Simulated assay, not measured.
Amino acid sequence: MDKYLLKRAARPFSLIVALVVCGLGIRLSWQAGYQDIGRALAIFFAAVIAQIGVNLINDHRDIETHSLTDQAKHAIKRNLWLGVGCFVAAAGLGLWLVWLTGWQLFLLGVIGLAGGWFYTAKPIAYKHRGLGLVGVFIFTGVMMVYGAWMAMGGDWSLRVFLLSLPVSLIASLILLANEIRDYEDDKTKQIGTLSVRIGLLPARILFVILAIAPFAAVFSLYELIPRFWMVLPALILLIAPLKEFLKPEGQRQKLPPVTGRFFAGFGLLYWFAV
């Protein structure tokens, strides 16, 4: 039941993802001369509200796949409607930004909302098909950076796409941290996350690869990142997640939040590096 409490279902540690990726898009637009504090605040609010919405609807399929108490079912249904409300609020801010910028942002927003909804919703439910990491990389990473950039007034840009890759990789890492933490529970309930499909050991190997990949991406993009070396202190923040994910079942509860702290540190350093 604790899993479905509002304060846990909202997954507050994950909100740093929305702040970092949108902050990157805003920073890049600011450098390019698209400077509007009103738009920037609207983008931050819309991104955080949309992220909360995705988190709140994430568990609604549990009603069909789990044996739950009436209290738990009520909490899930409440969270679902609150999540829908978050989507409506985010869409309202998004439409104002669309009015300022153009139809391209509207198209991006519709695709992004669909990506959030069908994370667990039928008929796609790509989380249960082992595609959650790919979806988060695209919808919570690349598209949110690009969406913030376009909402500030930017146009199509290969540079922005390339610079979004490091933070998009860590967004997927945070989801993988969730999957590893919940591995035994998801396996028992036959939830087809990527970690359940490939097994715990391969998932842990993938975790290490995804933890290193953002640094490799930054160094490979050194021509676009003048101060690429500034992300190196974030390596210190990797110690806690790497220690946590090696713990046995039942002792990995801190893995997602400590991975979130790594993302926050990396993201802030990355803002200064670009």
Rank of each mutant, 00 (worst) to 15 (best):
L100K: 15
D70F: 06
R61G: 08
V54P: 11
T69V: 00
R129M: 07
Q31G: 14
G53E: 10
V84A: 11
A32V: 11
L105R: 04
D59N: 05
A42G: 11
G141Q: 12
L93R: 01
K127P: 07
L80S: 02
S67Q: 14
A72S: 13
Y146C: 14
G132N: 01
Q104I: 10
V142Q: 15
I111K: 01
K127L: 02
H60R: 15
A114T: 05
V54N: 13
G112M: 09
L131Q: 03
T101L: 12
D36W: 02
H74E: 15
L100V: 13
I49V: 10
L68C: 08
G132C: 01
G53V: 08
F106R: 04
V145P: 10
R78M: 11
F87C: 06
R61F: 02
I57Y: 01
F139V: 15
G112P: 10
H66N: 05
L113N: 07
G38N: 15
I43H: 12
I37R: 14
V134C: 12
D70K: 12
L100S: 15
F45S: 13
V98F: 13
V142Y: 13
F87R: 03
T120H: 03
L68Q: 05
A47G: 15
A46Y: 08
W30I: 10
V110I: 12
A42R: 11
Y146W: 15
M144T: 15
W96E: 05
I52G: 01
G102A: 04
G83W: 01
Q35G: 06
G53Q: 07
A121E: 05
F139M: 14
Q35M: 05
H74A: 15
H128A: 12
T69C: 04
M143R: 03
G92E: 06
L108I: 06
Y34M: 09
K77Y: 11
I37P: 11
G109H: 09
G83F: 01
L41A: 15
A91L: 10
L100F: 10
Y126N: 07
G115M: 03
W30G: 07
Q31W: 12
A75N: 01
A114R: 03
T65V: 14
I37C: 11
W103V: 15
V110K: 00
L108F: 07
V88K: 02
G33F: 08
M144N: 10
H74D: 12
R61D: 04
H74C: 12
A40M: 09
A114Y: 06
G130I: 04
L108H: 04
F118W: 05
G115F: 04
T65W: 05
G109M: 06
G132Y: 00
K73S: 10
N58Y: 05
L133Q: 14
Q104W: 14
V136Q: 06
L95P: 03
G85M: 06
G130T: 01
V84P: 08
A47T: 07
F106H: 08
L56H: 01
